[in-house]
Design a protein around this nucleic acid. Structure first.
Lengths: 186, 186
DNA sequence: GTCTATAAAGCGATAGAC
DNA sequence: GTCTATCGCTTTATAGAC
């Protein structure tokens, strides 16, 4: 699939999909070149640091998207139930109901984790903190809020793994529905 | 870490650890050669099909281990509560309390999934079926048993991803304890 | 069964023309 | 800013000596 682009903002999402599909090691410059429609010369013009820089910037862009669309709304929410519903809706859309994999999770499981440890850890830490904060405000003790927030993080990641392993996106949607009930329970 | 081996049975577990640590694409023959202490000549003597055959046989060995130690005991159990406790104990030991990653999950997320789709799907299908069967026998409706079994599969995988992402093995142990409560709930 | 040597292809990255 | 050509290295895999 050739898709000619020339602006950095257009390149990063394409890069993200290549890393998602092939992992860090599997994402070769040839694949990246084909997907972006850019020669190696152009790629190194945008990313002098090569593949490592590309992956780092993709992670940063993902982080920024979640900060704006998921984490911040969680922190500033008035109504916990609505905020949780919105988070799960946004999550389900982002991961295309389980058909799209989480790049941070992919990196976490592979050898790339060592190179991007801070970014990988941060993504889950900030999501978990924002959710625990919200749950705490909804009346839960901070230890229960912490455990439920951790449950949410791991359920999302596990559902993505299982959905892909079994090639059944419905697994993800079901898991998100169940998670909603657990998060909102008294 | 050099560890000289010469029997096929001794090689497979070492191969497994290399694939776990580096993923399918990242596990180079040089790494495998170093870890097993075997030259490329010897490796191709054992595995004429190369890396693909190595990965396939490693998956088969993992599957066989789970069949004997986890799936079969689940199917033939008398006491559901004890069987679930045993499954979780076996799982926690196998994954070294979250310090060891699931190779099937790693393959599921990567491009290797396409090559090993049947083995990846089978592993989770048979585990899930065995657990759902047990839960059904414990008095749960088959639909509830199915959903709880799916919850267990995804919680294990998600806990492994999150534990590694946050470099905190305790996340896995906590998740297994919580999962036990959910599986045994009325 | 294990090794070394080597082939052929692919890798990330660079140089320099345009 | 984009391209082609190319470097040096690593990759998987094979051949053949021992």
């Amino acid at each position: 699939m050739k898709k000619t682009v020339s602006e950095r903002a257009d390149i990063l999402p394409v890069l993200g999909e290549v890393f998602r599909a092939h992992g860090y090691e599997g994402a070769t410059l040839a694949l990246i070149s084909e997907a972006t429609g850019l020669g190696k010369g152009s790629l190194y013009h945008f990313f002098p640091g090569g593949k490592a820089q590309m992956a780092g910037e993709v992670l940063a862009e993902i982080d920024a998207w979640f900060e704006v669309n998921i984490f911040a709304p969680l922190r500033s929410a008035e109504d916990p139930a609505r905020a949780i519903a919105a988070m799960l809706k946004g999550t389900e859309e982002y991961f295309r109901s389980g058909r799209r994999v989480c790049l941070v999770g992919v990196f976490a499981l592979g050898a790339a984790r060592d190179s991007f440890a801070a970014q990988v850890n941060d993504y889950f830490a900030r999501w978990g903190d924002a959710l625990a904060l919200l749950l705490g405000r909804s009346g839960l003790s901070s230890s229960v809020a912490r455990r439920r927030s951790e449950d949410a993080m791991l359920s999302i990641q596990g559902a993505l793994v299982l959905a892909r392993a079994r090639d059944d996106a419905k697994i993800f949607s079901r898991a998100m529905a169940e998670l909603k009930l657990r998060l909102l329970a008294e």
